[in-house]
Write a protein that binds this DNA or RNA. Structure first.
Lengths: 235, 235
DNA sequence: GAAACGCTTCGGCCGCGACCGAAACGACAC
DNA sequence: GTGTCGTTTCGGTCGCGGCCGAAGCGTTTC
C-alpha cells in the first residue's frame, strides 16, 4: 500500500528476466552464492553481480559474507508476495474468467513459501498441531506451551529451543491467500519444513518450488498428525 | 502464482512512472477517457495513447468505446493487488522492521479498494449489515434476503435490484489483507460506496485514494449502522 | 458538405540499461 | 611471498523504449 507514485523503480527491478530468474532461484529461502546465481540465470558473473547490486539496493535481497563467498538471500516475504502478485497478473489469460492451471494446482498442493510450509498442507499441519496442543494461537503469532515442545520433539524431532533462540520472529501466524487460513511461519515454520525434509516426508519436485509428499510422508502425516494427504483437498 | 518466468514483461508495464500514474488514476474503478488520463499523467495525448495500448495488451486495463471517446477501466482487482504488493515492496525502508507510515494509516482508515469499500470501515459496514440481517454470508459471496433488501432500501437508499441486474458478480465476499476479515464487494459493494458518497457520508480526501468520513457521515454510520467512527480502530 | 474534436499511428531524437571481457580487489592455500 | 578462486568494478557496444510533433482516422456538430 501507501505508494505515492514510487513503485516504478522497484517494479523496474522485476522487469528484467535475468533478475526475476535470480529471485526465483532464491524464493526457497536458502542463501546462495553469487556465482551459482549467475549460472542459474545464464549470465556471466559480472552481469549477475550488477543485477545483485541493484536488487540489494532495492532491498529485494540481502547479503551475508562468508569467507570469499557472498551469500544472497531473498529480502523477505514481501518480495515473494510481490512475485506472486505479478505472477497472478501474468498468468491467467487476459480474459476475465480465471481458472487454475495445472501448474498452479501442483504448486498449491504443497509448496515452500519463502522457507516455511504454506499451501493446503501447511494449513493442515498447523491445524493439526493446534488440535494436539502443540501450538496455541496468540496475537499474530503462535506460542508453544511446554508440553507442546515435548510433543514436537518426540514425534517430529523439532528443536523448539533452537527456533526460539533464532533472531527471526519465532512462530508468526501467516495468512495464506488461497487457503484463507493461518499457517505457522517464522523460525519454527522453517524448522518444521526442515524436519519434514530430513524425515523424508517431503522432497523437491522437478519444477522449482513445488514439494512432493513421499510415500513415507503419507504414512507419517497420517499417523503422527492425522492428515490424509489423499483427501480431495489436495487433488 | 504459477509464473514460469514470464512475469518480467508484465512487471515492465509497472516500471514506468507514467503508466503507474495512469493506473493509479484508475484504481477507483471509474472509467476515464484517454485524454483525461493523459492530463493526469502529465504527458501528451499521443504518449498516453501508446502507454494505454501497452497496458491494454497486457490486460491491465480494458476499453469501452462511447462515441468518439474511449473509456479505460482498470483490468480487475488483480491489478490493484499487484499495485499494492509493489507498494509494500517500495514503501517500507529496506531495513527489516516495518512500521506503518502515516500515509498508510490514513489510507487504512477508509479507502476505495477497486470500487468497493474496503479497509476497516468496509469490514465494519459489512459486519453491521450482517448483524442486522441485511446480508448473509454464503459460499464466497453474500446474499440479501428479501427483508434485507427492504432494510437497505429504507435506511440507505440502496437499489439492490439494480446491483443484482448488473453483469458483475453480485456481492462477492472479499478478504481484506490488513483487516483479515471479509467485506462486501462486487456490484453491491460498488452500489454501497456510491450511496455513501451520495449521502455525503464519505468524501474524497486530497490524496488520491483515501476517503474521509464527514461529520454527517459520523452521525449516519452511528445511527443507522451502529458504527462508532471515532473508536480506536480508526486511529 | 466542412470544421472541430478525441484518439491513434508514425518518424525521429535521446537516454537508460543489459550484456560482455578485462582488470582490480579481496580471501584462502601453499 | 605467489597462485588461485570468487566476486566486483570499469569501459564500451548495442538495442529497447519514452517522449514529442505531425499526420491520419473516425465521430460528432453545424
Amino acid at each position: 500500500m501507501i505508494t505515492d507514485g514510487s513503485i516504478a523503480p522497484v517494479a523496474a527491478l522485476l522487469a528484467d528476466p535475468t533478475r526475476v530468474g535470480i529471485l526465483w532461484a532464491l524464493v526457497d529461502g536458502r542463501p546462495k552464492p553469487a556465482g551459482e546465481l549467475a549460472r542459474q540465470a545464464g549470465v556471466r558473473a559480472s552481469t549477475a553481480s550488477e543485477h545483485l547490486a541493484r536488487l540489494l539496493a532495492g532491498g529485494l535481497v540481502v547479503v551475508e559474507r562468508h569467507g570469499r563467498h557472498r551469500y544472497y538471500r531473498i529480502g523477505g516475504e514481501r518480495v515473494v508476495a510481490a512475485l506472486e502478485a505479478m505472477g497472478a497478473l501474468a498468468g491467467p489469460a487476459p480474459s476475465s474468467g480465471y481458472r487454475q492451471s495445472s501448474a498452479a494446482r501442483a504448486v498449491r498442493h504443497a509448496r515452500a513459501c519463502y522457507d516455511h510450509l504454506a499451501g493446503a498442507l501447511g494449513v493442515d499441519v498447523t491445524r493439526a498441531l493446534v488440535e494436539r496442543g502443540a501450538l496455541v494461537l496468540g496475537n499474530e503469532q503462535y506460542e508453544v506451551p511446554p508440553e507442546g515442545a515435548a510433543l514436537l520433539a518426540d514425534r517430529l524431532g523439532v528443536d523448539v529451543g533452537r527456533a526460539r533462540a533464532s533472531r527471526r520472529q519465532f512462530a508468526k501466524a501467516c495468512l495464506d491467500w488461497t487457503e484463507r487460513s493461518y499457517h505457522v511461519a517464522g523460525a519454527l515454520g522453517a524448522e518444521l519444513l526442515e524436519r519434514f525434509r530430513a524425515l523424508g516426508w517431503l522432497e523437491p519436485a522437478e519444477g522449482s518450488r513445488a514439494l512432493r509428499v513421499t510415500p513415507s510422508g503419507r504414512r507419517g502425516f497420517r499417523d503422527v498428525l492425522g492428515i490424509d494427504v489423499l483427501s480431495s483437498r489436495y487433488g
